[in-house]
Design a binder for these strands. Structure first.
Lengths: 276, 276
DNA sequence: GAGTGGTCTAGACCACCGG
DNA sequence: CGGTGGTCTAGACCACTCG
């Protein structure tokens, strides 16, 4: 019965236990890989495998050339993404369009967090598979000029720390009617309200979820190294009063520090209220 | 400027390209690691790192002692987890309690998939952190007898292939009133209907999402090896007409083959209908 | 310049799978 | 049985950070 579980898994479990029972506290640096290798009497590569396991579990983050650190479980931020009654704006946090621009800010405020966004990065790009499918853009031959979309990207921070990346896509034609979409400034009234003024009222949406490994850009933004925890991808297609899809929003969250939730039906008020 | 991107990332990208453009088709086996090492003139460990990357990206699955295979993107199964109008059962797939027992089966049927569940695995266990918090069970000192919960677990298959694992938890007291919960058989009328007869009508729920690495049990169920794509965890707390939480359901999905979605407001009927 | 983690090699042994 | 991937070693060089 000696070695049924690999050594590196045992080591990861032991380090995890030290984190769980508080011998290693959030923010602490783990011993160097060399030290761990000596302490356990294994090679450094085995330690690297163990630290890898911890990273994927989300309790440890590694900063190359500096060390591995126990993750700070900063007060979790609850992002409520939907509402039963689309028109009901009377209760805190309730209303339409959860998780987006202004709703995100007000939800942060309610939870005593400081949220801010980067200035939007605006670009006109070729539509990708996802954009064409979601926005109902017909496919064209590969040698023809590709259809274009407007992309508005923002980095979102909570308490000064990177929280999520959001990219919204619109058909280029829409930007002719709603020219502020092309402006690299925040839309003060909120993009939902602005687009409503331009004739596209958001009356419904479809949300999809997936998990995938972070891209290089996301690793950099979140300050993570490779082999980190997967990110959660939230894809929202918004429909206007004519049943036409007019916006595609892709939001990428770092897991662990966010709780992503939906609420349906009647739930006690304290469920809405609680920030955790 | 030689080695800015690591060798194993290049190799992974090259293999990925072969998958994307069809030179490697779903179901194909990759060359053995030894062969890949020779072809690229690198050590086998470097190849292992590259295959690791592909696994985490979800396009390759490795079966130990057999080989690595390009993932079959079997017709994606769309799981609709919520409904705007809680009482509206008239449209296909619409109604209350998406993603659960009978709703899952009927949604599969609508999408021309064959779904079936394993016989429930029923157990009475100590309540964990999650169970106590969700079901509102007061914490007791560590040396006192721990509060108990009933767990009902099912493996869910679509087209004969493992799709998801679902665990439902109830307070033990509830099982005294609703004794079928303790019976290791399917509840024919559906557990939502059964519990309603027992005095707990499901009038609302809160859903949360997270991503995490799969446990050993989940790896085994899904037939995956280590360093695979993260699983998606869906946690639903159901509330009865008194605003009391009475059920906690944890569902674990393998990403890629499932699309997990919510719908709110008015969306075109074809959004509801489409199976992909 | 010393120390860190990231990459990589060239071996080794093992457990498990198939013919 | 031979072949597979999983684990592990004991080295090596690199790029980067920090004092």
């Amino acid at each position: 019965m000696a070695r049924r579980t690999p050594r590196y898994v045992e080591i990861a479990a032991d380090l995890q236990a030290r984190i769980d029972d508080g011998r290693l506290e959030p923010g602490d640096r783990l011993p160097t890989e060399k030290e761990l290798a000596q302490r356990w009497g294994v090679s450094e590569n085995t330690i690297k495998a163990a630290v890898n396991e911890l990273r994927r579990g989300g309790r440890v983050e590694t900063v190359p050339q500096k060390g591995s650190f126990v993750t700070e479980p900063d007060m979790p931020f609850v992002i409520t993404l939907n509402y039963t009654d689309l028109g009901d704006e009377n209760a805190p946090g309730r209303g339409f369009g959860g998780g987006e621009g202004k709703a995100f800010l007000s939800e942060a405020d309610r939870q005593r967090h400081q949220a801010h966004f980067s200035k939007p990065d605006v670009a006109v790009e070729d539509a990708g598979e996802l954009q064409m499918k979601a926005l109902g853009i017909p496919r064209v031959p590969a040698d023809a000029p590709q259809p274009q979309v407007v992309r508005r990207s923002q980095q979102r921070f909570v308490d000064g720390k990177p929280n999520s990346l959001q990219h919204s896509y619109f058909k280029l034609e829409l930007a002719f009617k709603a020219q502020d979409l092309l402006n690299s400034r925040d839309i003060a009234e909120g993009s939902v309200a602005y687009l409503q003024r331009c004739g596209h009222e958001q009356v419904g949406y479809e949300d999809e979820f997936d998990a995938r490994p972070p891209t290089e850009e996301e690793l950099k933004f979140f300050g993570l190294s490779k082999n980190s925890l997967a990110v959660i991808e939230h894809i929202r297609t918004a429909f206007d009063q004519n049943g036409e899809p007019f916006r595609l929003t892709v939001t990428v969250y770092k897991p662990g520090t966010n709780k992503i939730r939906f609420i349906a039906g009647d739930v006690p008020d304290e469920v809405w209220e609680r920030g955790s």
